[in-house]
Amino acid sequence: METAVFALFALLAVASAVVVVAHRNPVYATMSLVLTLFSVAVLFVLLGAPFIAALQILIYAGAILVLFLFVIMLLNIQREEAHHSGQAVQRWSAILGAAVFCGMLGMLLWRTHAAADRPLTGPLVSLKGLASELFTDYLLPFEIVGLLLLVAVVAASVVAKRPDAAPEAAVPSGAEPSEITTGAVTRETP
């Protein structure tokens, strides 16, 4: 039974991951990544980490990928141009490198055969134990991660701010408002 569930969701994860990488429309790629994340969350439950699975669905699929979708729709990205010029060598070398990497890792794992002979115990899956360890032994990294998230939010809002919202932006009357940069930065128009 567990083997069947593992096989089903592993296949689903790999197939949707291939769609993430291969699809030209970023919206479909993002929705396919949601499917991958849900499959991996099921595997987390199989591995005895239900809290991590819940975090995966809430944070990754619920927050991060919604942010991706918002940005995709905000930027109005059309599908990537199908015309690849001079990129064939790069693409095939990347695929070859990934295949070699995958093969080496697979051979390594094939030889070691790590089996889950330890039964799942209560402390491993209990949320209480996880929380107490997180808030005692790992309290300092936890606080640092909180600070990191604050810095990231501030940095993101500063970087993504419209440049013409700056107070010193004396707009020339002919200029297009969305293309004004602050300061004396010269740039070429696309």
Partner: peptide, 18 residues
């Protein structure tokens, strides 16, 4: 449990390569 942990590691390596 019938699934060895190495299968999970293999799947992880495959996803990483993709």
């Amino acid at each position: 449990a019938g699934v060895p942990v190495s299968w999970y590691l293999l799947l992880s390596a495959l996803l990483f390569a993709i």
